[in-house]
Design a protein around this nucleic acid. Structure first.
Length: 310
DNA sequence: CAAAGTTCCTGCGAGC
DNA sequence: TGCTCGCAGGAACTTT
C-alpha cells in the first residue's frame, strides 16, 4: 500500500487524533508482525501522552512525552484506522465507516494485530494481513536517529518530517547515482538514495521524465559529477509526482484507505503503473498511444513506454 | 498469478 | 593465488 504519500496521509490522520492524547491501553493480538513486538511494549507505552506524530521515509514516528519514540512501518498492506471506542463521546471527527473493530461485541478481524486505546475514547487499530509491517520502540531520540542513519534524503520538505531529516537535492542525487552500475529504477527504489519512493511512484516519475527504467544510473551524471539535464528532469518529476499524490491524499493505490477508512479524495489513475497494454498518454502534451509495456526488474514489475522513455 | 516493502543471502569482481 | 569487501540481483517473508 504505502509509499511516501500514503504514509504521509496516514500520518496526518493520526496526528489529528493522537497529539495531546494519552494512551490508556495497548493490546497485542499476536506476538509479532514482521518482527516480534518490542519487549514490554504495552507497559512502556501505557499512560504516555503523544507529543508529535512525524514521518521519515515510509515510517511513522510517534514522539511520546517521556522521550520514548514509537515507530511503525506499514510494509505492503499495513493500515492504521481510528474507531470510536465503546461508549466514546461523539466529538471525535474521524472514525472508521466499517465499524468492525469498534463494534467491540463482534470482536476484531483476524488481521487486527495491535490496538491502542486513548483517553478520549478513540481506538487505533493496526491491521496488516500480510504482516510485512512492523512496530518498534526506542528509549530516546538518539536511538531513533541511529536507526535512521542509513535512510536517504527526503524529496519533499514538509512540517510533518522528523526534525533534522536531510533533504534531497539534484546535486546530491547526482553524487549518489554516480557510482551506481544498477538500472536507475533500482537505484530510485533504494531507500538509502532517496527516502520514500516505491514501485508505483518510481514508474510514474520515470515516465514523466522520459527516462528509461533500464538506463544505468551513472549515465544520468556527468563526468564532473554534476547532474545531466535528464537527471534534472527526473528529480523534478519525482518531486512533482509525490507532491500531487500527497495533495490528493495518497489515494493512488487501488485499496489505499486513510485512517478514517475512506478511499483517498482523488482516486486518479496512473499514466503507466498497472497499465500494461493500455495506450501511453504521452508526455509534455504530446500524445503517444503506444501500448505501455510491463517487464520485471529485480523481481518487481516495471511499467514503461518504450517510445517516451529513453 | 501477482501484489504497494524490506532484509538476507549468494555470487561476482576489484583490490590488496 | 587467495582472501576480503562491496555491490548487484534474487529469494524469502505472507495472505488474498
Amino acid at each position: 500500500m504505502p509509499e511516501l504519500p500514503e504514509v504521509e496521509t496516514v500520518r496526518r490522520g493520526l496526528e489529528a487524533a493522537w497529539e495531546g492524547r494519552t494512551i490508556v491501553s495497548v493490546e497485542q493480538r499476536r506476538h509479532d508482525l514482521r518482527f516480534p513486538f518490542p519487549p514490554g511494549l504495552a507497559e512502556r507505552v501505557r499512560g504516555r501522552t503523544v507529543r508529535r506524530v512525524r514521518r521519515r521515509a515510509k515510517q511513522l514516528i510517534v514522539l511520546l512525552d517521556d522521550g520514548q519514540v514509537l515507530r511503525s512501518h506499514l510494509g505492503m498492506s499495513g493500515r492504521w484506522t481510528l474507531h470510536r471506542g465503546e461508549g466514546a463521546g461523539a466529538t471525535l471527527g474521524v472514525y472508521h465507516r466499517d465499524l468492525r473493530a469498534s463494534d467491540v461485541s463482534g470482536g476484531y478481524g483476524p488481521h487486527d494485530h495491535l490496538v491502542l486505546s486513548f483517553d478520549d475514547g478513540h481506538v487505533a487499530v493496526y491491521t496488516d494481513h500480510r504482516r510485512f509491517g512492523w512496530v518498534d520502540l526506542f528509549d530516546g531520540i538518539e536511538d531513533l536517529h541511529a536507526a535512521l542513519r542509513d535512510v536517504g534524503p527526503e524529496p519533499l520538505a514538509m512540517p510533518g518530517l522528523v526534525e533534522g531529516a536531510p533533504m534531497l537535492t539534484v546535486e546530491g542525487l547526482a553524487l549518489r547515482l554516480a557510482q551506481r552500475r544498477t538500472p536507475i529504477k533500482s537505484a530510485l527504489l533504494d531507500q538509502r538514495i532517496v527516502a520514500g519512493l516505491g514501485n508505483i511512484y518510481v514508474c510514474e516519475a520515470l515516465h514523466r521524465a522520459g527516462v528509461s527504467p533500464r538506463r544505468q544510473a551513472s549515465t544520468l551524471v556527468q563526468q564532473s559529477g554534476r547532474p545531466t539535464e535528464r537527471l534534472k528532469r527526473l528529480f523534478d518529476a519525482v518531486v512533482q509526482v509525490l507532491e500531487e499524490a500527497v495533495a490528493s491524499g495518497g489515494s493512488t493505490l487501488a485499496d489505499f484507505r486513510g485512517v478514517d477508512g475512506e478511499l483517498g479524495y482523488f482516486p486518479h489513475h496512473f499514466r503507466v503503473y498497472d497499465r500494461e497494454g493500455l495506450p501511453c498518454p504521452g508526455r509534455l502534451g504530446r500524445p503517444c498511444g503506444r501500448p505501455v509495456t510491463r517487464f520485471v526488474q529485480s523481481g518487481r514489475s516495471t511499467f514503461a513506454c518504450g517510445a517516451c522513455q529513453r
